[in-house]
Design a protein around this nucleic acid. Structure first.
Lengths: 194, 194
DNA sequence: GTAGTTACAGGTTTCAGATTGTGTAAGATG
DNA sequence: CATCTTACACAATCTGAAACCTGTAACTAC
């Protein structure tokens, strides 16, 4: 049940998030969302064109919740770029792992988006690549990284760390030595960048 | 129907492979395997303790079919180690992609083994890591790679190229620029190794 | 006694019919 | 007239009984 006033997109998103958390993406229905809001399911369709669009919007909001902390690291010119890259990748792993662990059903919904190649998933990757590119550009300007195409290099670093952020591989994020594993890769990549 | 003579493990493996190719891992049954051999399903159980063990043995044999070509590259001391590493990784991608494309059902069976953490899958990875380690050891001995723990480095190179060999990511192996993507990663890793 | 079969218990899958869900359009309410 | 509901067509999903599969054991034929 919503507090009061007319139905708006934000409260639908929150209700959907709750329903997804309770039932998971496979069982959650638009009727459930309506019930949660004390409204018929048709009312939901005045704000979102389809169930898929609704799910996508929820995942987008959920993904963006950790975005700023990560962007803060990427943009922190106080930290030298090599260390910044390490921190950023470590933070990315920590964030993804926390999401998978604390919110398994919403993580499952996000995983679906990725396998379906949805716009939200593509945008999410583009955002992360942009952050990586910023770190690399700073490093190239400051001389700590060799000059090269920053976009292509960002893509390469992202791909080389797939193991640590691709949702399809989340099952292997609970292994004990994973932080050290990332450290070894980081060292190798940093040596390759300069 | 088998040719003649008593039933042996090899012909059961071949029959199972055919059945898997036809019906896929989800639908294939031990009864089907028996039919294929002109034998009751119980006869199969005289040679394999369970359906899972049978499937695992089939996948093992199927995986080992490309093994020697790959091992030949890894052990070819004519090729300088950096180039050898490139060739080996390219060959690994080509092999995996061909298997996924030409034998989708057997590839699906293999994917199941990986998600179940089966012994066959673990052994397969250990074998590949051993081949990588051989290349790295040669390179370190010959001075083209910096000295470091070869096992740990092999693990790092394998992890950094997850995108190109992990069966869970096979859907993305058909993208056009993937060879170049691997080239970029290779360049980065090779720079990091020396 | 080796190499296979038949018979069976318990678990899993399948299939058809019933229920529930999605998305739209026309209508009620304030 | 903006906001929501009811009503609906069609698609997807659930349910429970029948069929089928797995793995074992007792049995047959050579």
């Amino acid at each position: 049940m919503r507090a009061s006033g007319p139905l708006d997109a934000e409260s639908i998103l929150s209700a959907t998030e709750d329903v997804l958390r309770r039932h998971g993406p496979a069982k959650a229905t638009v009727v459930d969302v309506g019930k949660e809001l004390g409204v018929s399911h048709a009312a939901v369709y005045k704000h979102f064109p389809s169930k898929a669009a609704l799910r996508e919007a929820v995942s987008r909001r959920w993904l963006n919740r950790d975005r700023d902390a990560l962007a803060a690291i990427a943009g922190d010119t106080e930290i030298p770029p090599p260390q910044r890259l390490r921190s950023w990748l470590a933070a990315l792993l920590a964030s993804k792992r926390a999401k998978a662990h604390d919110d398994p059903e919403l993580f499952a919904a996000y995983k679906l988006l990725v396998t379906e190649n949805s716009v939200a998933a593509i945008d999410h990757v583009a955002d992360l690549l942009g952050q990586l590119e910023l770190i690399l550009t700073d490093g190239m300007a400051g001389g700590s990284f060799r000059r090269a195409d920053p976009a292509q290099t960002a893509q390469a670093v992202f791909t080389a760390t797939t193991r640590f952020h691709h949702p399809g591989l989340a099952a292997a994020w609970t292994e004990p030595g994973i932080e050290q594993e990332l450290d070894v890769i980081c060292a190798l990549l940093l040596d390759g960048l300069r």
